[in-house]
Nucleic acid binder design. Structure first.
Lengths: 233, 233
DNA sequence: GCGAAAATATTGACGTCGTCAATATGAAAG
DNA sequence: CTTTCATATTGACGACGTCAATATTTTCGC
């Protein structure tokens, strides 16, 4: 989509300088560098993993000097946090993707869970970054807003299923009805993209994929009290 | 070169030179450096987080040269993997800690889950390291064995609860009966130690702690199908 | 005991990283 | 056109992982 632009001839650049985004006059020096850096960062993240994502690598990928990102993100945590914010926004979209308009609360809940895992599988590097709080700066407004949006999504679905509005104060049961499904789906996604389920899945009937396993986890016998869930699914 | 060695006295005690493990004559140069490095690494991990755990920092903490760890661990992944192996062994012990002899399979299962989360809370840095596969080297025999032990623990408890031995081949329902509880407890632990549940827990009645929330998650309404789980807790 | 051989520890170097300070450059405002 | 400011570059510093060369200690054959 975006031409990574010519390498700008190093020293002797006789070519026209600012041909970067002819359509958008809002560019400064070299165009919308912040956005370009974010896209480059995501590319690096999914290509080389979180260890390969550095400020200098992002600058290199875009073709600017190693210190250029500082103007837009401050430090590494800034870049990672902005990228995580982008991820959370897309995350919300992924969870909403499978929810149909008139679906029952239970179906809606399941669709959200499937979207949750689907996003993690599609963007494992981004997902891991988003849920690795140690490297993020949650004081950044963009990240905070994106996180809040994704949190509101889940509790909204739980509200609809329970048929009661969640107030400022929560009962233990209300909290558990949010944290339970969240934990189940989050743990599944984490274990899956970290390869922890591979040994188990290798022993399943041929052709059984992660989606089938997720379906069985969501619908099968209860995790804690099998007596009530019938014998076989 | 002698000046560096003088530092060893600070950690070893009164003796100036190689009095590190008087009981075991199997020591080489400076005592059991490998074990000392592992202990130092764990100290650093819990004190400064995973970002502060470096080969050089571990060497510094013990008082040896910056390249000394290479002899025992090869590279950074080696140190992290050996430390993760130690963690998995302790992890198994933590899960077994709450299981009583004649307890029912369900109670045993719950005890394992509580031990799972308790370990994560007690050693968050170690737990995160153990479940961050990207930085580990699973070809290391010690790590492989420790991981297998912890995996066998969970499936063993599930076997007991289902009353059937798990064979080489798995049905989808069998796999789900393992992955479901695992995901639930793992996700809860992950979200908890990453601070993701803090906003929710702040809205709970005063005095409600993470253990109470975990209990509600384990015993409360099912994550996916509340109809079967009785009315409401 | 003693010397050879192996194991272990140190030193120094290289390239990469994040970050900072100083400087240069292009855009916008007057 | 000139001032002003946001943006980008250059160069430096310390910390890191890793490697090669060297030094020191333990172990083992005798």
């Amino acid at each position: 989509m975006k031409a990574v632009k010519a390498r700008k001839g190093s020293a002797a650049g006789t070519a026209p300088r600012k041909v970067r985004k002819p359509r958008r006059p809002e560019t400064y020096h070299h165009g919308s560098l912040k956005e370009a850096l974010l896209q480059a960062a995501e590319r690096i993240l999914e290509r080389e993993g979180i260890g390969g994502l550095t400020l200098r690598a992002a600058a290199r990928e875009v073709g600017v000097s190693h210190a250029a990102p500082k103007n837009h993100f401050g430090d590494l945590a800034g870049l990672l946090s902005e990228l995580a914010a982008v991820g959370f926004n897309r995350f919300v979209a992924a969870m909403q993707a499978g929810t149909r308009e008139g679906a029952s609360p239970d179906r809606r809940m399941e669709a959200i869970g499937r979207g949750y895992v689907a996003f993690a599988r599609a963007h494992p590097g981004l997902f891991l970054l988003m849920f690795r709080g140690e490297r993020l700066d949650f004081t950044r407004p963009s990240l905070r807003a994106a996180v809040d949006a994704s949190a509101g999504m889940l509790s909204g679905a739980v509200e609809a299923r329970r048929g009661e509005k969640v107030e400022a104060g929560l009962t233990l049961a209300q909290a558990a009805s949010i944290v339970g499904p969240w934990s189940l789906v989050h743990g599944f996604a984490m274990l899956l993209i970290d390869g922890r389920l591979k040994p188990l899945m290798a022993r399943l009937p041929a052709g059984t994929d992660a989606d089938a396993l997720l379906g069985a986890v969501l619908h099968g016998p209860k995790p804690a009290r099998p007596r009530e869930a019938g014998t076989s699914a």
